[in-house]
Design a protein around this nucleic acid. Sequence first.
DNA 1: CGGAATCCATGTCGATACTG
DNA 2: CAGTATCGACATGGATTCCG
Lengths: 132, 132
Amino acid sequence: MDVTELAAHTPAERRDTRSCLKITQVLSRIGDKWTVLIIILLRERAYRFNELKRSIDGISQRMLTLTLRNMERDGLVTRTVTPSIPPRVDYELTDIGRSLAGPVKILGDWAFEHLGRIAAAQAMFDAKSPDT
Amino acid sequence: MDVTELAAHTPAERRDTRSCLKITQVLSRIGDKWTVLIIILLRERAYRFNELKRSIDGISQRMLTLTLRNMERDGLVTRTVTPSIPPRVDYELTDIGRSLAGPVKILGDWAFEHLGRIAAAQAMFDAKSPDT
DNA sequence: CGGAATCCATGTCGATACTG
DNA sequence: CAGTATCGACATGGATTCCG
C-alpha cells in the first residue's frame, strides 16, 4: 500500500484522510524547528548534549532537551549516559533515525533548491496583497 | 552545494546552521497540519474550496483558508476565481508545488512504513518513563 | 459558495533560575 | 555537564458569526 491512495476518489475518501492523521503526526515532527537539524548532524557521528547545543545556532537548552526527548520517544535516537564526573550523555541515531535521514535530505535539497523561487513568490504575493 | 554541508565540522559550523534557518522555515510548512494532505489531493486535479473541505476530514474552514493562503504565498498553488453565482474558486498546484509532491511522497511513504515501529518505540518509552 | 472577523482554549517556545 | 522547573509571550487552531 502506498500513500498515494489517500488521493483516491472513492466514497470513503474522508476515512482515508482520517487514517492519515498518524502520518501527519510523524511528519509534524519533521517540520518542527530543530529535528531535521539534529538528524543532519547526527548522520555523521554521535554528539554530546552541549556539543549539539553549540552546533545548532539559536536553540535553547530547553528546546534541545525536548526535541531530543521526543526523538528518543519515537525511536529515532538513543541516549547513552556515562555517569562520570562531569556526566556525559551521547546521542546517536538509531537505525530508524538513520533511515529517515535519506528522505529528509531529499526534502532538504528540494527546499534549498527552491529557496529563491519561494522567496520571490512571497515577495510578489506580499506586493500585491492589500497594504497593511 | 548541498544540504549535507550543514554537518561539516568546520569552525563556521554555527554559521552554517544559521543559514539553514530559511530551509527550516520551508520545512515547517511541510510539517504543518494540513499542507501535505492538500498537496496529495491536488496532485491529481484541481479542487474547489468546499471540495477540499469535504475531502479533508477534520479541517476547519479557517485553517483551510489560512493553509491555502500560505501555500499560495509560497507559490505552491494557484487560486482561480470564477465570478459566477454562486462564486467558484479553484485551487491547483503550480510547477513548484508539483515538484514538491515527489519528495513529500517519499517522506510520506517512509512515515507510513515506519508507523508501527514508531508507535512501538513510543509505547516502550512511555512504559519505562516515570509514571505521571 | 467562499470566505473574513472575532473570540477563546491550548500549545509552543524562549529566558531565567536552580540542581545533581 | 546535562539537565529540570517555572513563567510569560506568542502562535496555533477550533467554533462561531457575519458578509458579498
